[in-house]
Amino acid sequence: MRGELKEPMGPIFTDAERLLAAAGDGPLVAVGDVVTYHLERAGVAPDVAVVDGLTEREAVDDDVAAGVARLGESAREVHVENPAATVTREMVEALREAIADPDPTVVVVEGEEDLVTLPAIVAAPLGASVVYGQPSEGMVLADVTADAKERMRDLLSRMDGDADALFEILDAT
């Protein structure tokens, strides 16, 4: 499934302002420290930011860490464990609750947030936007549509683990 996961789930942007102009009117979910930093620098606090202090498995630089920290000053902060190449129950529950919360939330992951985009698209309401980083290319804007939700459900159902339990948590919104 690595090949399927490497394909961008939407257009790639290198400019946060252009990305924001193309985003829908619904909630904005940012997955990744660098994406969150660029949105924060463009003057927009995502409704949900999922960060792990890493970019391409290396610690983020001080500017990115400071930008994420600024966002955290005005948002609720939740800490979860989520190992690499995994989507834990704790992660999905925190994601679902953060999306449902009308106030901004930063989900700080101990481990990695590398697969969180998939359940984020499933959990977010139609019309929302999920933004994540495409290594060495830019930021991907994934519009949350019925088709996108179905594609993410298909990918998640083919992964190892208990897909039924995952969907039960995600559908509890």
Rank of each mutant, 00 (worst) to 15 (best):
D62T: 12
P83Y: 07
R96M: 13
D63L: 14
A69Y: 10
L141S: 07
L95Y: 07
T55L: 12
D47Q: 13
E110M: 11
T145N: 04
D154K: 11
M1V: 03
L166D: 11
A45N: 07
V29N: 08
A69L: 13
G43I: 05
A30Y: 10
D52V: 05
M1I: 00
G111M: 02
A65R: 14
A16P: 05
L126D: 14
E7V: 14
P104I: 11
H79V: 15
P11G: 07
R70H: 13
L5S: 01
P135N: 03
D164F: 09
V60L: 09
V29C: 09
G32A: 03
G72P: 09
E93Y: 10
R76C: 08
G111V: 01
D52F: 00
P125W: 13
E150R: 15
H38G: 07
Q134T: 03
E77Q: 15
D160M: 11
H79P: 00
I169A: 13
D154L: 14
R2S: 06
A75M: 10
D147W: 08
H79G: 09
E4T: 03
P83R: 07
R76H: 05
L5Y: 01
D171I: 05
M159P: 03
D15N: 10
D114P: 03
V107C: 09
L141Q: 04
R151Y: 08
L115S: 02
V44T: 14
V122P: 10
M152K: 09
K6M: 05
M152Q: 15
D47A: 13
L115V: 02
V144N: 11
D103G: 11
D47C: 05
D154W: 08
G10H: 05
L20D: 00
M9S: 10
R57V: 08
R70D: 14
P102I: 01
E113H: 02
R96A: 15
L166E: 09
P8D: 00
E150H: 11
A172H: 05
G43S: 06
V50C: 09
L141C: 08
S136K: 13
E113G: 04
V48D: 04
A128D: 07
S129N: 12
D103E: 15
V122Y: 11
D114V: 04
R70G: 11
T36D: 08
E168G: 15
T105M: 00
G10K: 05
